[in-house]
Computed example of a mutant assay.
Amino acid sequence: MTDAGAGQTVIRRLEPSDRAAWDGLWAAYLSFYKQELPAGVTDAVFARISGDGAHDGLVAERGGRLVGFVHYVVHETTWSIEPTCYLEDLYVDETLRGGGVGRALIEGVYAAARRRGCRSVYWQTHDDNARARRLYDQVAVLSPFVRYDHVFSQD
């Protein structure tokens, strides 16, 4: 994906051996979005993104240290014969933001989606996530769609 020279960002597939380093980034990601998840959910998420199913994960590495991740899922759609790709989670260590790591992770998803025959890649973020949106405005087109959620109670 990218060169492994000093200070360079390497984008590669998430591996089961990345769990400890991924846990720290995942905790920071959840904190950023003010979310808490039970340990069992985190375990299931990691199993999905490091397995061989529809979900997948890439990591960004610098100097042998994980500094970011992206999770995505390829799925069928009613609008095309080709599948599409939903970029579900993207996180970069806050000390490295603005340095190209996020862009490299997105480009890694683009490459993976092309290899899997996808028609497009899409994602969402909070409307007030200005820093991330500056990057997203450079690498994609803002959709006019509005999202609605209905969450089932856990009773």
Rank of each mutant, 00 (worst) to 15 (best):
D56H: 13
G108S: 02
V10N: 02
E61F: 03
L14Y: 02
E107W: 04
H55Y: 13
E94G: 10
A28D: 15
A132D: 03
M1S: 14
A104E: 11
Q124A: 14
G57S: 08
L142A: 15
Q35F: 08
R116E: 11
A28N: 06
E88I: 00
A27Y: 01
Y110L: 04
H150R: 11
D52L: 08
E88K: 09
P83C: 08
A44S: 10
Q35A: 13
R147E: 10
A4S: 13
V10R: 06
R65T: 15
I11D: 05
R115W: 09
G53E: 04
A6M: 10
A27R: 11
S31V: 08
Y72R: 10
V67F: 11
Y33E: 06
T95Q: 06
Y91Q: 02
G117E: 06
R134K: 14
V59Y: 06
S80K: 05
G117W: 14
H55C: 02
T125Y: 04
L66T: 07
A21I: 00
A6R: 15
V151F: 04
L90N: 09
I49M: 05
R48Q: 14
H71W: 02
V101R: 09
V41T: 15
R147C: 10
R119F: 08
Y110T: 12
P38D: 14
G24S: 05
G5D: 10
F145A: 11
G117L: 09
T2A: 12
R62V: 12
D56A: 15
G5S: 15
A27K: 12
A39S: 14
V101W: 11
F152E: 07
Q35L: 15
L87F: 09
